[in-house]
Design a binder for these strands. Structure first.
Lengths: 344, 344
DNA sequence: TTGTAAGCGTTATCAC
DNA sequence: GTGATAACGCTTACAA
């Protein structure tokens, strides 16, 4: 569809400005398939026609209609990334950790020329994800943060939907997960507490999230008979709710002498709540956070934390997903974890 | 395309498992257009046939092929969000501000049933954005962070590409921008410094970014003849680079008695660098950050900062973009800004 | 209220 | 090497 002089001699566009492959073919005096071949880098076309077609296409600002293309092809070259914006809804986002992951995934997809469709996690049984595949919107999914969706993910895996998950790595999972060694992370924190001679530990985190449960398990394992362990759960895992939960807890419970928090953000909330109750780290208690976010080092006191090797995560997640989409298999992987000792 | 018994009597799928609208039509004993009407909520179909078709579709896990749909329709119902991951590449993401914006945009688009295609900012002349429209991939763009792209955006606006920008609001811009009142933000910081009796101010930020330049302008305006103003620019605007730049500066320059930083993250870097040079806030200097990120209140010392009303930003950006896509006009908007005085 | 036919812009298949 | 032709799965006339 291209300019056609109207009754007044002025150029008129028949329906929109869009130029089709047929137009380019006509303008370049070749057939549609030839244009297609040129644009897809087929080796069959002559260098001369290739250049000519490319010139005409560029001159008219032509770009292949991706919807028509996707209709014909089996791949959509699009991946849906599912993120838990919900836990931040209405509030401020404090923990940049998940976005570092997102940045890594975006980069890795971009390198492969795959589009990234971003969506917020919906509740439900996974029917909507199946539909996205059936509707040929995306080729597969990357779930950032396992959260409480393990049952849904198991169902999805059984249906053969291609996806990978950032979260807890568990040999029983029937799907591919990539995550830090959460169990070891918990153990490292516990061993650190033992070395400091701490005996009354507290774990802050919601066990409904598999990756957090594993950190809890690691801590429990390290505690053995040498320490007692209480758990503080705040439904919503933000700075504010953690602060409130600990504040409430301290009102009618003795303070712990060691705290392992599920994130550095929660660790900061804990430090503030503890300070307001008269407990100072590292004098009165030891504290270990998780993620090693940039601020952790600059907070006062500087936070001892568990670092995950997340810079690789994006690339690994994408690579595994692509294997699945290609019909292959993909194994779960654990990324190294280490304790970074600072002031607390 | 549906199960067909093969030569051996076993069910065979002709090409893939996908079910088409024609299949559903046949199975429900109606025509294709009727199925289409049911799925699009047309009021013309009988309640009986509606229910029947829906039942058959659901039973077979049918979902409309979105590519075929988009090929026929004029809208793609997809919006591309462009983000500057680049400034964080390889490093850690410290400032969650831009992601709060992203969360807001995601939420607003989801409410309207519009897909969000996330992309990292590419350098270049905007040709790739035109192509995305021409290829009918997306209906329009939301640029989060104007950065240094103003010239490209002007070109894009001239071409009639629908887009909105989070960034500096300038009456001269030929496009729709939404942003906080950066000029006022700068003035607020300056007035605060004047009230504290500070005379040797420093601005930290890269003027190549229009929104930051406006904050600088506001500060300059407030300074008038009452204060001197130096500028510290670090190309890359991260915590680390700001820290280094200020550290280097302090090695051979006198320290300022007031600092206005382009972000709270930069403010924290400034506090650390100043402290290491023996300067303590608020004793020796005043400091104002920007964004009021959650940590700002919990940092030691608690950071005085400029707050932007970002919780509305996502919804506003999306609404304006939709107006443009609908062929209407959209005016730039400034969001309120206020000073939050804390310890610094 | 429903059905028939045409066409959206590609790519795959097969000729030439 | 290149071209004609037929799908891909849907929606939009228009007809019944």
């Amino acid at each position: 569809m291209v300019d056609q002089p109207d009754q007044n001699g002025r150029a008129k566009r028949s329906r929109s400005m869009s130029v089709s492959m047929a137009d380019i073919a006509r303008l370049a005096n070749v057939s549609k398939p030839t244009v297609s071949r040129v644009l897809n880098g087929s080796p069959l076309v002559t260098e001369a026609t290739r250049k000519h077609v490319l010139a005409v296409a560029s001159e008219h600002g032509y770009a292949v209609n991706r919807n028509a293309q996707k209709l014909r092809q089996t791949r959509t070259d699009t991946v849906q990334v599912v993120l838990d914006f919900a836990s931040h809804r209405g509030g401020r986002i404090a923990d940049p950790f998940i976005f570092e992951l997102l940045a890594g995934v975006a980069e890795a997809l971009s390198v492969r020329n795959v589009d990234l469709l971003l969506s917020s996690a919906r509740k439900g049984d996974g029917r909507s994800y199946q539909d996205q595949i059936a509707a040929r919107v995306v080729d597969g999914f990357i779930f950032l943060g396992q959260g409480e969706r393990d049952p849904m993910l198991r169902k999805l895996a059984k249906l053969g939907v291609p996806f990978v998950v950032w979260g807890a790595v568990d040999p029983d999972e029937p799907y591919c997960a990539v995550g830090s060694d959460n169990l070891l992370g918990g153990e490292l924190a516990g061993r650190y507490f033992l070395k400091q001679g701490r005996r009354r530990w507290m774990f802050i985190g919601n066990d409904a999230h598999a990756e957090i449960r594993m950190r809890h398990d690691g801590l429990t394992k390290a505690a053995g008979d040498a320490a007692t362990l209480t758990t503080l759960t705040s439904e919503e895992m933000s700075y504010v709710s953690t602060y409130r939960a600990l504040k409430d807890h301290l009102a009618d419970h003795p303070a712990p002498d060691a705290i392992f928090a599920f994130s550095d953000t929660a660790a900061m909330a804990a430090i503030t709540a503890m300070r307001e109750a008269g407990h100072i780290a590292p004098r009165d208690y030891s504290l270990v956070g998780y993620n090693n976010i940039p601020f952790a080092a600059d907070f006062t006191p500087a936070i001892t934390t568990i670092e995950q090797e997340t810079h690789l995560a994006g690339a690994i997640l994408v690579e595994k997903l692509m294997q699945l989409i290609d019909g292959g298999r993909a194994n779960s992987t654990t990324l190294p974890t280490r304790l970074i000792v600072r002031e607390t």
